[in-house]
Simulated assay, not measured.
Amino acid sequence: MQDRSWTVLSLLDWGTEYFEQKEVRNPRFSIEWLLSHVLEVKRLDLYLLFERPLHSTELERLRPMVQRRGKHEPLQYITGRVDFFGIELSVASGVLIPRPETEELVEYILASHDNDAPKKLIDIGTGSGCIALAIKKERPNWEVWATDLSESALRVAQQNGKELGLQVHWFQDNLFAPELLRHHPELAHSCDILVSNPPYILNEEREALEREVREFEPEEALFCSSTHRMYSALVEHAKSLLLPHHSQMYFEVHEQYANEVQNISKDYGFTAEIRHDLAGKDRFVISTLTSTLSPS
């Protein structure tokens, strides 16, 4: 970005070409996202402002953002914000960026449970808090808990809850050595719903990921060593948290291993079904407990 007079249109055109040269994904969208953030307008409104000149202070804000995007850093980390299910969340390096597929998971939960009867829901591996906070906003009479291994992720989630004025009970915990019930024994066999979008990309798939995911998003939120180990731990944890009858688990899963997760759930007495995402991929396993929890 040389020192010259810039309008919205000239900067959009320049930014698109620059990002194309840097092989950045969605080059036009990228410059639109960054410029709309700096100008504090909606992205599509840029096209009503083609002749608007940019002030020097706006260019000073935009320049380092363009440089970061040119290195393939995710847009959400650069602006620090992301929209999720009608709420705006803060995100930062070290916190998984919420995906549209996870919004679909929230939609499945809400579609199955109206607002009449209070529920208790726990979100395992909450990250930015996106699932827990979206549920709490839509079902304010529900009691919502959320855990994560990452202290930095929980700080972001707590701040998001504070900014949105939504009360969620946060707890730092390790799925493979959980301490939640030791500190909150009242949660034992009390939850109606357990939801989780855990790390489900296998380590050997790392190099197949897009650069902006592989190089910038937290490994601990992306990768697992084994689908069976990850989801067995989740169901084991669920055994101690869910009500013994008519409770449910909602999992986001790797599209290639949905059957494996379904079978794990069935082994523990759940009826389990696979649901597609909007792209038609096997993305969710929804399990319902109709008998006392016990592995077969």
Rank of each mutant, 00 (worst) to 15 (best):
A177D: 14
S296M: 10
L194M: 06
Q76V: 06
P53Q: 13
E179F: 02
R52F: 03
P244W: 10
A208K: 14
A177F: 09
K119T: 01
L62Q: 10
L209Y: 12
A233R: 13
A188W: 12
V195Q: 02
L202D: 13
P118E: 03
E20L: 13
H276G: 06
A157W: 04
S36H: 07
A221H: 03
V41D: 03
S196Q: 07
E260L: 03
A177I: 06
R182N: 14
E40V: 04
I135W: 14
D267G: 06
F251Y: 14
K162P: 05
N263I: 01
L11I: 00
E179V: 06
S225T: 10
E210N: 07
V285S: 06
R99L: 05
E255Y: 11
D45I: 04
E255M: 06
F176T: 12
I274N: 05
H183T: 00
Y268G: 13
L202K: 01
Y18K: 15
S150I: 08
E151Q: 13
M249S: 09
R99Q: 12
Y108F: 12
E217L: 00
E217G: 10
A238N: 14
G165K: 07
E17G: 11
P178Y: 08
S240A: 15
H113S: 02
L166T: 09
T7C: 04
L49K: 07
L202V: 05
T7D: 08
E107D: 15
E219P: 00
S291R: 13
F216M: 10
F84Q: 10
Q256P: 04
Q67S: 14
K22G: 08
Y231E: 11
K119G: 01
V285F: 06
G269N: 13
E104H: 00
L133N: 15
E215C: 05
P295A: 12
V95P: 08
E236S: 15
R61Q: 15
N263L: 14
K120C: 08
V213K: 02
I109G: 03
L289A: 14
W142A: 13
L96T: 08
L133M: 06
R4Y: 08
Y18V: 05
L278P: 06
S152G: 10
E212H: 15
E143S: 12
